[in-house]
Nucleic acid binder design. Structure first.
Lengths: 329, 329
DNA sequence: TTGTAAGCGTTATCAC
DNA sequence: GTGATAACGCTTACAA
């Protein structure tokens, strides 16, 4: 008698149904089979609580219906929204998500990729900070927000366009003394284009645009000092500030408050990301909102596309502006 | 000649190293083998970029080194922190995390479990809302925050104790007219004990304690109305409010502001969860903080424990109080 | 110690 | 259309 504690196999189902093993396999792979046979097999499978073993299946087919998602941190609202989107898009296509968190550690990122390759996933979606990541060209890979090389497709928001949009909004709202503020990773990424887009608008109009770009290691103090140093008779030298992301914008607003400045009356502030408060659903600040859902959807789409022969190397998705109280009107 | 596009197998490594297949296997399983053989194998493996196929391995060993994490939503800060914790704890033990998101849908939860069983994971960690979830007793399962039956181990925060703690704090801070506010799922869960603990403290002291408990479907309007209805000459009938979670506390603070009440001067407010602002790291409100990291760690520990014969059916982890500006001092 | 061979649960290729 | 049978890549007795 078959032991009850180990899961039933196709062989058990075949015996229970009184058919050959191959027939059972066909039933579970939607390969035509006699109607009565199919019934018998399905019946037997239900009785036994049979589930196909996808590892054994993967061993044969070399497809595992699972993809790895590599993220630096899932605690940040942008990343968690992205994870949610990717996981759902994958699930909708019958794929499992294997989640790896790297804590921004380049070494961990590389280890992740190795581990995941060993796990024989069908592909990887990664948002990584290791500039010289060694990824097996045999394994489909889609990068989010970080461009590696023409052979590694990357999907990102239209960061440059977002920067331009922020500049145009600020101009439209009457700003004439703009400032761009940035803090982030030392390794270059797509988001660097935000500042470029912002500045390009003013350059084109022959207007000056101040900017301060920092690396994470430097902390926010330099920004606070910079702002304090640009106070002039109770007035700031700038009347429109674009921050590289919402997190920074929120901090900057606090700094401005410390300096006795009103937002948006004295200074207008635009962030980037489009994050919303977890309880109220409100934007934390006026912001350029990234299409997180589409980012995820597009990434999955590019990864799973049957014909991956000529994928674009970079896909930019459109961003939008949303008012969140730190701009006038 | 072996095709370059399919990953190398143990056989390839054996051939490359000039040893037998079994020897290669032993090297990768840390089974004693001649030092020079080991060297040869490792060398060959590196040359070929060999990675053991964990699916094939799992097929033999019936262990896949992966566990499924089932969560309703990963966008909420509490869940994302939990996911991060579980994923890290699992990774530290050499396990992969398969993430499933159910969107609070009981049917999706059941489907997840099925899918995941078919995927032959080594266990499941789930935070689910389906009260009559059908889980295969053969598969190790740990529930978070929801108690099913003595046979399904559950790990949760000390919700009752947290409620008591909130009550004691409020008393200590001079409150004499307490109110408990709750909104949540209709299906009973561990978090229901928060209100019970809170009320028990006042009952014990012979003090009255008002309470309003709502289901998600009802929305927040009833709470707003309730508060408005308890205004008496510009004063609220309550001077200390305990909310079942931080999300509600944040909303309630807004309602109180609408009524012209100052927090914490006129009313003190305590939430539950211990969520922190993504940019500043500040608590959103005074709160009872759940030990998310320990919750995750403990869950993983209970799931992966070698001897699962006599696990506790419920483990409660201690919570702490943190001031977040909605209580005095 | 090292090599050999029998499966693990599937799928796929054949004869029937 | 159905049913043996040989892989898939690996582990693990067991034999050398």
């Amino acid at each position: 008698m078959k032991q009850r504690d180990s899961a039933p196999t196709m062989k058990d189902v075949a015996r229970e149904a009184g058919v050959a093993l191959g027939t059972v396999s066909k039933v579970f792979n939607d390969i035509p089979v006699g109607e009565d046979y199919r019934k018998r097999v399905e019946e037997a499978a239900r009785r036994l609580g049979y589930q196909v073993n996808s590892y054994a299946r993967g061993l044969k087919t070399n497809r595992t219906c699972s993809v790895a998602l590599i993220l630096p941190d899932i605690t940040h609202p942008f990343f968690s929204a992205l994870a949610q989107g990717v996981c759902s898009a994958l699930a909708a296509r019958g794929y499992r998500t294997i989640l790896s968190i790297t804590a921004y550690d380049p070494e961990a990122e590389q280890k992740c990729i190795q581990m995941v390759q060993q796990n024989k996933v069908d592909g990887i979606i990664g948002l990584t900070y290791n500039p010289e990541l060694d990824i097996d060209p045999r394994l489909p890979y889609v990068s989010i927000d970080r461009y590696f090389s023409p052979s590694v497709p990357c999907v990102a928001s239209d960061n440059f366009g977002g920067g331009q949009l922020a500049a145009e909004k600020l101009l439209e709202l009457g700003c004439t003394r703009p400032l761009f503020l940035r803090i982030g990773s030392r390794v270059p990424g797509e988001s660097d284009k935000r500042g470029d887009g912002f500045e390009s608008v003013f350059r084109q109009r022959g207007m000056a645009c101040a900017a301060l770009r920092l690396n994470n290691e430097e902390g926010l103090e330099p920004i606070r000092d910079f702002l304090a140093g640009h106070m002039d008779g109770g007035q700031l030298d700038f009347d429109g500030i674009f921050c590289v992301n919402d997190a920074l914008a929120v901090r900057v607003r606090d700094f401005l408050a410390e300096l006795g400045l009103e937002v948006p009356e004295d200074v207008q502030l635009i962030g980037f990301d489009g994050l919303r408060h977890f309880a109220t659903g409100d934007f934390y600040c006026s912001t350029i909102v990234q299409p997180v859902g589409r980012l995820a959807e597009t990434g999955v789409d590019m990864l799973l596309r049957e014909d991956r022969s000529n994928l674009p190397s970079l896909v930019c998705l459109p961003v939008t502006y949303a008012s969140g109280g730190t701009t006038k009107e």
